[in-house]
């Protein structure tokens, strides 16, 4: 960890100003990923803008009937918030599937979006990594890539985005509100994270100095039929190999609307409009789910140690859709798959 200066901003404007007033700044919310990366010398900011005094912790209903989640509200406060639990249980389940109670008490909603990949090579300065050091090469390709991407990867990077919360936010079509020197703008969730392409050092589409101030959930919460299913190498406190956010709106046994997003498989939460289209208007049967699963992994490519993810994703999608169709009671709040 290199030396840095730190200010604790009292307002969003002050934070944004302070950020741009220094050479190599970073915002620090909960700090759970940034300090981890700084101790590994992967991140080396020389100035930190502390966000934990900002008045961005509220969770409130919007005029459109949606829910606005403050950027510095913690993941725990969000997951257990009565409105989130009642109206967006998919989001609650996804947050609670991630990290640990301690980390969820620290991690902020904005920070969750800013998490960087868990790729072993990204974290280890002894190995080349294009995301950490553009142009140095991707060690995960041809290396140990059990946790790596099967969809949307590039020859420069096969990292995955590690968040659970973001998978649910993608499925729920959240909107990210950001503030920069040029004022406030809104970013559709699917446009927030990016695929690695030839610039894997860029995880998202934020411009320099922009600060996430809120996440807005649209009115539709799929609170009746949902499932966040996460598969990992131990029951809890581990990153996903594959996760599925499934949300259905049913009319009897017919699917009226559907959302499907995958975690652990790509550089961003992975949505497949084609798969969702295959669900809409169809009977909520295993046959339908299988078709959607197949469409979701269309074009998937294994890298060796992660080949299994393709079949695992198919099966997890079918299971999550079954759980969703069966209704919220099919899973408990943690859905940690322990019988």
């Amino acid at each position: 960890m290199n030396p840095f200066t730190l200010t604790r901003a009292e307002s969003v404007d002050a934070a944004v100003r302070d950020f741009s007033g220094h050479d190599s700044s970073a915002y620090i919310g909960g700090g759970t990923n940034l300090l981890d990366l700084m101790k590994e010398n992967v991140a080396r900011p020389t100035h930190l803008v502390g966000l934990n005094k900002l008045p961005l912790t509220s969770i409130e209903t919007t005029a459109e009937g949606g829910l606005r989640l403050g950027a510095t509200a913690t993941n725990a406060d969000t997951a257990w918030h009565p409105d989130v639990q009642a109206r967006y249980p998919l989001l609650s389940q996804a947050i609670l599937a991630g990290a640990s109670p301690q980390l969820r008490n620290m991690a902020t909603n904005g920070g969750n979006l800013m998490q960087r990949t868990r790729c072993y090579y990204f974290y280890d300065l002894a190995t080349p990594c294009n995301k950490r050091e553009p142009g140095s090469g991707c060690s995960a390709i041809g290396g140990y890539n059990r946790i790596h991407a099967i969809l949307g990867a590039s020859e420069q990077c096969i990292a995955t985005h590690p968040s659970d919360m973001c998978v649910a936010l993608a499925a729920l079509e959240a909107v990210v509100h950001v503030r920069g020197n040029g004022g406030e703008r809104r970013i559709k969730f699917e446009d927030f994270h990016r695929l690695p392409g030839d610039a894997p050092e860029q995880d998202n589409t934020l411009k320099a100095g922009e600060l996430i101030v809120a996440l807005e959930l649209p009115k539709k919460g799929f609170e009746k039929n949902f499932s966040y299913l996460k598969l990992r190498d131990r029951t809890s406190y581990a990153f996903a190999l594959v996760s599925v956010a499934a949300a259905l709106e049913l009319d009897g046994t017919t699917i009226r609307d559907a959302r499907l997003a995958l975690g652990g498989v790509a550089h961003k939460p992975w949505r497949s409009p084609a798969a969702e289209d295959l669900l809409k208007g169809q009977p909520a049967t295993e046959a339908t789910f299988r078709k959607a699963a197949e469409a979701s992994v269309e074009g998937a490519v294994g890298q060796g140690a992660n080949d299994f993810k393709i079949e695992l994703a198919r099966r997890a999608i079918v299971r999550a859709l079954k759980q969703a169709a069966a209704g919220g009671k099919a899973t408990n709040v943690f859905n940690n798959s322990n019988p």
Binding site: L6, R8, I28, G30, G31, T32, L35, D36, L48, G50, N52, A76, S100, P101, Q102, L103, N105, M106
Partner: peptide, 13 residues
Amino acid sequence: GKRINSCLTLAVL
């Protein structure tokens, strides 16, 4: 009153 990992926060914060 809330449990946190003290290794991942700065004392000054």
